[in-house]
Nucleic acid binder design. Structure first.
Lengths: 124, 124
DNA sequence: ATAATATACAACCGAATGGTTGTACGTTGT
DNA sequence: ACAACGTACAACCATTCGGTTGTATATTAT
């Protein structure tokens, strides 16, 4: 179950690691666009843009709908929100560290040497 | 100025697109860890982990501090926050679309054909 | 002094990435 | 009917990625 989450995160972050794909996502979040309309905006082949759209689609950041000969792409804001949630989790880890440091400051006699974090708290 | 932002975003998202790097970032956000302590947690060579740390460092998600023979790595929560801000921007684009659709629903006589978005608003 | 530890970095390798061109096929317009 | 359009996909290519091993160097412990 959590391995699948990591798979999703892999796909999300990878999809967003390319500036063309981020730009495409911005456009399709703002409104539906056909793949060729999108392709007209970039200095690369239609096939290249098509592949970028496919990466975003596979990552679940975008959905495609067929209308006649056109493929209309639309951004999925729910996925963007989930991604934001992951970042929030990272921030909460950091807050945990801060409160731990506060503890140490609050009880200065407990430790002789300044060891802000226990040297290594390996899980296993 | 905005090209540099895109460079930063490229580095951020790329750095986070690997699950080992995300895990490393979680640990160093929660507290300082030496590179070898981190390396002990993963089923790969020290050099591999070292490279992952280097990617995170280059992306500005992590800083290293030298203490004796150890390199202590620490997560940078400000970068994580900036990343969260980018996601929020994407969400705001989506909200813009919704309000545009609301407009269309509110004034159904204004448009003869259903053209939810202007066909292509190329930037240049 | 010597051995063990922690890091740094280069060289290499297979797989994936981001681009290209070419071909095929359904849809739309004349 | 036929040409043009929009899409899909395969094959190819250079570069990057994620891993390896090996070597070098500085620090710490015996």
């Amino acid at each position: 179950m959590d391995g699948a989450d990591e798979d999703r995160a892999d796909a999300w972050f990878h999809a967003l690691s390319d500036r063309t794909r981020r730009d495409i996502l911005r456009r399709v979040l703002a409104g539906e666009h056909s793949v060729s309309t999108l392709a007209a905006s970039y200095d690369m082949s239609f096939a290249a843009v098509q592949k970028h759209v496919a990466v975003l689609e596979k990552a679940g950041l975008l959905t495609k709908r067929r209308q006649g000969r056109e493929a209309l792409a639309s951004g999925d804001v729910a996925a963007v929100r989930s991604l934001g949630g992951m970042l929030a989790e990272l921030e909460s880890l950091w807050r945990g560290r801060i409160s731990r440091i506060d503890e140490l400051i609050a009880t200065p006699e407990t430790h002789t040497q300044q060891t802000p974090t226990p040297p290594h708290t390996q899980k296993d």
